[in-house]
Amino acid sequence: MSTDKTICLIIHSLGIGGMERVMAQLAVNFADRTGTEVHLILIGRDRKVVYEIPKTVVVHKPGFIFNNSRRTVDTLRTIYFLRSRVLKIKPDTILSFGEIWNNLVLIALYGAGFPVYISDRSQPGKDLGRLHNFLRSKLYPKAAGYIAQTKEAKKICSMNRWNNNIEVIGNPIRQIHSNGQAKRENVVLSIGRLIRTKHFDELIKMFVDIGLPDWKLVIVGGDSKKQNLSRKLKTLVRELDAEGSVFLEGEQQHIDPYFNKSKIFAFSSSSEGFPNVIGEALSAGLPVVAYDCNAGPSDMIENNKNGFLVPLFDQEAFKDCLKELMSNENVRKKFQQNAPKGIQDFIPDEIADKFYSFILSHESNH
């Protein structure tokens, strides 16, 4: 089969996470296109692949283990590996995900002549520290284009003059299919990495405060960013005498059964790029209560239609909305019927088409 297009995808890893799942979905979609060859380069410390990707996707990893004690040397080795590998692949286009990683990719490929499209995947305009903020201001304008996950992210990119070629493309939202056997239980579900900005401690306290019997709070997610919060959260649950109603499930690769078994999705995060799990909860027919953080939830939740959008950090309002959903079956059913409307703009194949067209748009401009 002749290759018409060679696409190179670059990310730190394909471990569990929203950004990683999107990249995996794009790799699957692109590899399925006739005449398209897909290369995936993993440049992080932990270069695992937990998502299923086609055997036709060529995966590249540096041949050394990244050692933090010789961070500078191993960062330089990663840059050299990345540049030499891309020069060998000679892709028609490159897509890189992740702030800080985008800086590394743009440094590695500086002057190499390949179009590099970049996308930040967390809170728009996130402070990366003095060095990386400086690098971003100098390097991002050199990229062929910038993919913003939300209109808010595009506004921040324009305001900071990071790039002139900006396209807003949301995330592909997987359809969560019920197998028809799972019976919904009185479960409030929350999913996310155990990091401080997700505020799982506050969610646990709010749930316990509500005090409705026969309800459970289930939190799915593992420790991340060396914050080791699982131990603290377990201690909190014990102190609140809530071990019979609050369950910390840890990191789970298969989360669909949790969506299919629950009745409500609670999202207490204060900082997001585009929270896939909200979309997945809606696709599973779950009403959602979420903080209206600066980007993401309001792109999918229409307040009082398919969920509740709560002013950021207003814990009393969040608690009231969660209690309303737990105690009022009519409201739950109304939101459930409206849930799919929140994700109709994020059908995976249509999102992948937008990515594909945009990262190859430079060819039609020549």
Score class of each variant (00 low, 15 high):
Cys293Phe: 07
Gly18Val: 05
Gln181Met: 12
Val28Leu: 07
Phe259Arg: 10
Gly279Val: 01
His199Thr: 04
Ile343Thr: 00
Asn163Arg: 10
Pro115Asn: 02
Val38Asp: 11
Ser262Ala: 15
Ile347Pro: 08
Gly307Ala: 02
Ala284Met: 14
Thr6Met: 05
Asn306Met: 11
Gly211Asp: 15
Ile41Thr: 01
Thr72Val: 14
Ser262Val: 01
Thr235Leu: 13
Lys354Ile: 04
Met159Ser: 15
Val50Cys: 02
Cys321Gln: 02
Glu185Asp: 05
Asp92Met: 03
Glu185Phe: 04
Ser271Met: 07
Met1Val: 13
Gly307Ser: 04
Asp345Trp: 02
Cys157Gly: 12
Gly35Pro: 03
Ala281Asp: 04
Asn304Ile: 06
Met19Phe: 06
Glu324Thr: 12
Lys198Cys: 06
Lys205Ala: 03
Ser364Lys: 15
Asn328Lys: 02
Ser190Ala: 15
Arg130Met: 07
Phe30Thr: 02
Asn303Pro: 10
Val188Lys: 12
Ser298Cys: 05
Ile210Thr: 04
Leu286Met: 08
Asp201Ile: 06
Asp256Ser: 15
Arg174Asp: 15
Ile264Cys: 03
Ile65His: 08
Phe355Pro: 06
Gln253Ala: 05
Gly342Thr: 08
Glu302Trp: 03
Asn67Ser: 10
Ile43Arg: 08
Arg184Gln: 09
Ala24Asp: 09
Val277His: 08
Pro257Asn: 14
Glu99Ala: 14
Leu14Lys: 06
Ile100Phe: 01
Lys90His: 06
Lys5Asn: 00
Glu239His: 06
Ile210Glu: 01
Val116Glu: 10
Gly113His: 07
Ala27Pro: 01
Ala112His: 00
Ala108Pro: 00
Met23Tyr: 07
Asn171Tyr: 03
Thr36Ala: 10
Leu104Ile: 11
Val208Cys: 12
Ile347Glu: 15
Lys61Gln: 14
Leu189Glu: 09
Arg332Ser: 04
Ser269Tyr: 07
Val116His: 11
Met19Val: 05
Leu312Glu: 02
Phe265Met: 02
Asn103Glu: 15
Arg70Met: 09
Lys205Tyr: 13
Ala182Glu: 15
Asn67His: 12
Arg71Gln: 13
Thr34Asn: 10
Pro287Phe: 02
Tyr80Ser: 06
Gly129Arg: 15
Glu251Val: 08
Gln344Arg: 05
Asn294Asp: 13
Asn306Pro: 11
Gly273Val: 11
Arg85Glu: 09
Lys154Met: 03
Leu322Phe: 10
His12Pro: 14
Lys183Asn: 07
His60Gln: 10
Gln175Val: 11
Glu249Asn: 07
Asn294Phe: 10
Ala242Gly: 04
Asn303Met: 12
Gly180Cys: 01
Lys126Pro: 04
Asp92Asn: 10
His199Gly: 05
Gln337Val: 15
Arg196Cys: 04
Asp292Val: 03
Glu243Ala: 09
Phe81Ser: 04
Gln181Cys: 08
Leu9Asp: 12
Lys126Asp: 09
Glu243Val: 14
His362Gln: 08
Arg174Leu: 10
Tyr356Glu: 03
Ala281Asn: 05
